[in-house]
């Protein structure tokens, strides 16, 4: 939508845009260009000279079994986090939307975890799941489960998935609840008059009307679990044991920051950028559908 009345001149808007444009060009466009350039160059071991390498870095990446394994691991991790965080959020939101006493308090109790940093969530669960001192770990041992996520690959994955999903439920809850509240009251009433109750009402009426919101949230959750859970994983397992919880993001960090292999990490960065671009395009697609409702 364009507005009819504007202010004349171009000097004022140019001045207004200077800070944003400076930040964008210097700290966004330039780094992106640097990464794209580095991803097609090969540096000698001393970093003294560079030669054009074409797509060699990418070929190397996609023939590296470690990288391919990380892709598979990331898919499993993201799928599990997204499913868990969304499922719980829908369950809680459907009941929080009901007309019950204490609704406001419940909502506050379910919204605040939005403020917990992914890294802090990792720390909390690292403490609770700690094989020696963790309260939850102790409980699991009582139940006869040999709990040590620092040694057991599967347990490690469960721990990072659980902690990552735990942190994300409230974000999803906020959106699903808003989505439920935007469903016109009359449609719910009509469904009640038609005799649809409980699960049936949810499956045939609420879920279809929530679909655009859920599609949008799936993309957001995939982006979250792929990138923002770095802190959670770092606090819990640092990608271990071995590489059992090493997602693509953790791998970029290990290769680029810890091992200083900038060529390989630049190619990895470019792959991640392409991935996010794709996901974001998908997200805008859903947003437009949601907006058009």
């Amino acid at each position: 939508m364009e507005r009819r009345t504007i202010f004349p001149g171009w000097a004022t808007p140019a001045l207004l845009l200077v800070p944003q444009m400076a930040l964008t060009v210097l700290l966004f466009l330039w780094p992106t260009a640097v990464a794209v350039r580095a991803s097609v160059m090969r540096a000698d071991p001393f970093g003294l000279s560079e030669t054009f390498a074409g797509l060699d870095n990418f070929t190397a990446l996609f023939t590296d079994p470690l990288y391919l394994a990380a892709i598979g691991r990331t898919l499993v991790f993201c799928g599990a986090v997204t499913g868990l965080a969304l499922g719980l959020a829908v369950l809680l939101a459907v009941f929080a939307d009901a007309d019950i006493r204490g609704r406001g308090a419940y909502r506050a109790a379910l919204v605040w975890p939005y403020a917990v940093a992914p890294a802090a969530a990792g720390v909390i669960w690292a403490l609770l799941l700690h094989p020696q001192i963790g309260g939850v770990a102790g409980l699991l041992k009582h139940l006869g489960i040999a709990w040590n996520y620092k040694l057991n690959d599967t347990q490690a994955m469960i721990a990072v998935v659980g902690a990552s999903a735990w942190r994300q439920v409230s974000y999803n809850f906020i959106f699903v609840l808003a989505g439920l509240q935007s469903i016109p009251r009359t449609i719910i009433d009509a469904a009640r008059m038609d005799g649809a109750r409980g699960w049936r009402r949810f499956r045939t009426i609420l879920l279809p009307m929530l679909a655009p919101t859920l599609a949008f949230l799936v993309v957001v959750n995939l982006v979250y679990s792929a990138f923002e859970t770095f802190g959670t994983i770092e606090a819990l397992t640092q990608g271990g044991p071995g590489r059992a919880t090493q997602t693509l993001m953790v791998k970029v960090y290990r290769d680029g920051v810890v091992n200083l292999d900038l060529g390989a990490s630049a190619a990895q960065s470019v792959v991640l950028m392409a991935l996010v671009m794709g996901l974001t395009a998908l997200q805008f697609h859903f947003l437009r559908r949601r907006g058009g409702r």
């Binding site: 964008t24 210097l26 700290l27 966004f28 330039w30 780094p31 992106t32 640097v34 990464a35 580095a38 982006v223 990138f227 923002e228 770095f230 993001m249 970029v252 960090y253 680029g256 920051v257 900038l262 990490s265 630049a266 960065s269 991640l272 950028m273 996010v276 671009m277 974001t280």
Partner: peptide
């Protein structure tokens, strides 16, 4: 700019900074 979270471009951004 909206599209790329800082995590994705962490290494190149570090180089520029």
């Amino acid at each position: 700019t909206l599209m790329l979270p800082v995590e994705v471009r962490i290494i190149p951004t570090f180089a520029v900074v």
